[in-house]
Design a protein around this nucleic acid. Sequence first.
DNA 1: GTTCACAAGGTGGTCAGACCACTTAATCAT
DNA 2: ATGATTAAGTGGTCTGACCACCTTGTGAAC
Lengths: 210, 210
Amino acid sequence: MAVSMSPKQKVYQGVLKEIRQFIDNNQLESGDKLPSERELSEKLQAGRSSIREALRALELLGLIETRHGEGTYLSTYRSLQTVELLSSFILQKSVTKGDLFSTKKMLEKEAAKQVFYDLDENDLDRLRSIIDNSELLPYDKHVMFFEYLFDKTKNLLLKKVWQLMERFSFTINKSYYKPSFYEELLQNYMTNQYGLIENLFNGVVLPYED
Amino acid sequence: MAVSMSPKQKVYQGVLKEIRQFIDNNQLESGDKLPSERELSEKLQAGRSSIREALRALELLGLIETRHGEGTYLSTYRSLQTVELLSSFILQKSVTKGDLFSTKKMLEKEAAKQVFYDLDENDLDRLRSIIDNSELLPYDKHVMFFEYLFDKTKNLLLKKVWQLMERFSFTINKSYYKPSFYEELLQNYMTNQYGLIENLFNGVVLPYED
DNA sequence: GTTCACAAGGTGGTCAGACCACTTAATCAT
DNA sequence: ATGATTAAGTGGTCTGACCACCTTGTGAAC
């Protein structure tokens, strides 16, 4: 095993790193083919079994896809089977309502702050129309309002994490902030008061629930 | 390979299921020990390499923990949230390095702020010993340092989300802040300067990488 | 009896080589 | 041309062999 590695790192972890680098260097994209196991084994000077351990891990993560007799490819679509299998590993131990709420709030606060300098007139109008729309339920307003903000952050991961928590907390209750909250936040945006955002969120102790 | 399995299922996937069942049947909990690889190999009538492929995958997911010379243990992680998050955003990458880094940084900042008023002398000593330990690599220091902070937040979900990102970013690169960062943060804690934490994190633009 | 050093056994880490199953492409016979 | 056959390449799996590491127990020295 010649995969350069820091002390006590396992070979398969080094292989993981090498593979990532290979993908980078060769600009591989979804659907592209990786070198064969034997080729990687020789090139990285590691046993084929170690190569396989790394590939298996990547496979379970859904990052690659292997086709018997063909080769290994960068994954293109998501495999449901994997997810199901993983889910079955789960034992109860659910997150507390408190953890969920405070973490979600934190994400919302952060999004609200991050977009502060990127909002223009148009954005503010949009946000206003959401909170003024009497057709919408408070909870729906909440979701739409923040969805808009998260989109503005341009951080897909951040939005994804928030959505997951939103979806999960949805199964518990539909929570949102008191109506004046959104109004004040918008006010802070319009009057350019960055510093007050933090305080606004910190003032929220308990959410409203449906 | 006698692991009962539907057509074309790979042995390691069957092994995965068997292991889950084993955990169920024996009521194993976090920290408990799994049978040895050789024992599983014999019991499930599968080659040790197949057993290992399954274990490696579980390890990368953070569901188990292996200790050289000792055995394999159920990890203390293990949670629905972890798996759900994993499967959803990892499978549909488009998550950029930048998103990952900034989201992770955000979580770390938030943890650093949340624990501000809960740290006592003992905590500060612990943190200091981590950053002063010359045996540790910068990346390991980073992980240990923030792991400590996340533990102090008492918010399991927050920690899990962070761990998840840490683990995922690990497959890309081992990133950490410049050494003086931790020093300054600790300094802010000692001199009771809550306000400076935000600035400290905002000052971080790019991480160091290994 | 207590303590310490060391040997033995168990466990994960890794490798090499052997087959098997499957896919693709080249080859050959029609 | 067309279709069947063959060969080569690839993943899938097993076996057996070492190595490195940890725990435990044994026995020697005190």
